[in-house]
Simulated assay, not measured.
Amino acid sequence: MEANILNSKDEKGRTPLHCAASIGYLEGVRFLGRRLMDSHRKDHCGNFPFHYASSKGHIDIVKELLRHCPDSMELRNSSDQNILHDAARCGEDNLVKYFLKKAEFQMLINQKDNRGNTPLHLAKMYHHHKVVDLFTFDRRTNLKVLNDRGMTSLDISESTLETSASDHGVSLCYTCFYHITDDDDFGYHNQGTSFFYLVC
């Protein structure tokens, strides 16, 4: 009876573990983690509990899920997105920072989803500037990765701004400035990029 309740699903295919992870209920996640034989259950959108925790920025839940299922970090949803994609898309900069500090998550940094977008692409699309900065100044981030539309994360930024400017009846000029640094302590790219946009 208990097993049936713990593995029950609602109309969206979410289990109690999905719900506990989503709201950041740490004790609930611990309780369920000790009793569930399989925590790798998808909802109807293909999301695992780990994705719910990542999209809400619940670092303590992420740590607890990893403790029970260390291989969960590699799980992907129906959009072929990993947990770093989710954190970046939702603007959870503290969680992104946590992932980037841990070497075991580095394989997620440049992974593509089913549309070829990396976590940085998604952060740019959803205008999460703090997250964009975290990726941009991490030298492991490949800024030249193309998505399925043949766009880098920079292209997405330019396209979005040009569309916005066009909607307001103005033209947009931009200048790229490059900074050179050898300071490995900050993990900067040897050639970082910042953009100053001017309305002409």
Results as ranks from 00 to 15, higher is better:
Met125Cys: 09
Leu154Trp: 14
Pro49Gln: 01
Ser79Val: 01
Glu92Met: 15
Gln111Asp: 08
Ala103Tyr: 11
His85Arg: 00
Tyr174Met: 15
Ala103Gly: 09
Ser194Cys: 11
Ile109Lys: 05
Ala3Cys: 06
His40Phe: 12
His168Arg: 12
Asn7Gly: 03
Gln106Ser: 08
Asp133Phe: 10
Leu161Cys: 07
Met107His: 15
Gln106Arg: 08
Asn110Tyr: 11
Thr175Phe: 11
Thr152Tyr: 06
Ser153Glu: 10
Ser55Cys: 08
Tyr197His: 05
Tyr188Ser: 12
His179Cys: 12
Ser78Asn: 14
Ala3Ser: 08
Thr160Trp: 15
Phe48Gln: 00
His58Trp: 10
Lys124His: 09
Ser159Asp: 13
Thr118His: 05
Asn114Val: 07
Ser164Gly: 05
Ile59Glu: 05
Ile156Tyr: 03
His168Glu: 10
Asn117Ser: 01
Ser171Leu: 14
Gln191Ser: 09
His127Ile: 13
Ile83Phe: 02
Phe50Arg: 00
Arg14Lys: 10
Lys9Phe: 11
Val62Phe: 00
Asp182Cys: 11
Leu120Met: 08
Glu158Phe: 14
Ser171Asn: 15
Asp38Gln: 03
Glu162Asn: 10
Asn110Asp: 09
Gly192Pro: 06
Leu146Met: 14
Met125Val: 08
Cys90Phe: 15
Leu95Lys: 01
Leu134Thr: 05
Leu161Glu: 13
Ile109Met: 04
Cys90His: 15
Asn142Phe: 04
Arg139Tyr: 15
Leu95Glu: 00
Ala165Glu: 00
Leu26Ser: 02
Pro16Gly: 04
Lys63Val: 02
Asn77Gly: 03
Met125Phe: 07
Ser8Ile: 01
Pro119Lys: 06
Gly187Pro: 07
His18Thr: 00
Leu154Cys: 07
Tyr188Arg: 13
Ala123Met: 08
Leu154Glu: 13
Asp71Glu: 14
Asp80Leu: 10
Cys69Leu: 09
Gly169Lys: 06
Ala165Ile: 02
Leu6Ala: 06
Cys69Glu: 14
Thr141Asp: 05
Asn77His: 01
Arg139Asn: 13
Thr152Glu: 10
Phe137Ser: 12
